[in-house]
Amino acid sequence: MSIATIFEIVLAAVVLGLGIWTIVVRETYSATVGYVAYGLLVALIWVRLDAIDVALTEAAIGGGLGGVLLLGAAARLRDSEPTVADAPGKAVRVCAAILSALTAAALAGAVLVLPDPAPTLAPAAASNAWATSLANPVTNVLMAFRAMDTMLEKVVLLLAIIGVWSLTPDSAWGGRPGPRHQADPHSVLVFLARLLPPIGIVVGIYIFWTGANHPGGAFQGGAILAAMWLLAIMAGLADTPPVRSRWLRLVLIAGPGLFLVVGLAGLLFGAAFLSYPPAQAKPLILGIEVAMILTIAATLGLLLAGAPERSARQ
């Protein structure tokens, strides 16, 4: 058995153990910490499987932003966590256990009956890569061959932010999300919030730009930009924008809007909805991605900031 195999077995065992513990542990806060560590380790597995694009997304969403979102939820739930007295009864627990076991069995069955070899369109995607002059096959599929899915995914992001905003109390409608953070200007947090964002913004734009030919892309880059924005907000160096602001709403619809305009132009002047002429495919895709990275960064940041809580003047 080679060292690489032992490494893989150890990694899989560690991830499985952590996953089970995250489910079993009682306090939400501990489970969230476990989930963040789990996201980091799953990113390692994706690298091991040569799926760098997925690893980047897992590191950005699973280990970073998703963990912080759950953390906020855990902090809110902490006061209302059920005590031993009002724990669910035996019947509820048995039903939940049976339901979970059935779901797990159905998933395992679905994995077992998958056809082997799996049906794949990868050779077709690779042989038509010339049409977009982008070298990263994942970006090719996301932005050209299955562009419709990506466009609808951006619309889903927009729906998610509308869902969060709809929880706003009437008095705060149009106001700013989250509390106004105050920090000592000489504290470590403020120092870090001044030091890290310049580096983070460069890395975020780099991840986006390199996505044309190497693993990366607008979503991963946008997640990094959103994290840097939230860092400045948490240090009190910036405030969340009021949700009624026109420019903010413009940024939120820029990505899906431009995608839709280019798609309709393809319908009018080209072969089909979202068809790019091969000569202009790369500039068109890059233009859509520039609008998308702004939309994604703003949407992810606002999703984590939550519903508006105070009026714009405070």
């Binding site: 806060y29 910490v33 963040v36 980091l40 990113a43 690298v47 760098i52 690893a55 980047l56 590191a59 950005a60 280990g63 970073g64 932003l65 963990g67 912080v68 953390l71 906020g72 902090a75 953070h181 947090l189 870090l192 890290l196 580096i199 983070g200 890395v203 780099y206 991840i207 390199t210 190497h214 693993p215 990366g216 991963q220 997640a223 990094i224 994290a227 840097m228 939230l230 860092l231 948490m234």
Partner: peptide
Amino acid sequence: AAIDVALTLALLATFASIAFVKKG
């Protein structure tokens, strides 16, 4: 490209640790 993943992880792990402290 694994270096890019490491860069992303470095930035977001820092961010997560600050959120741990801020929210916790």
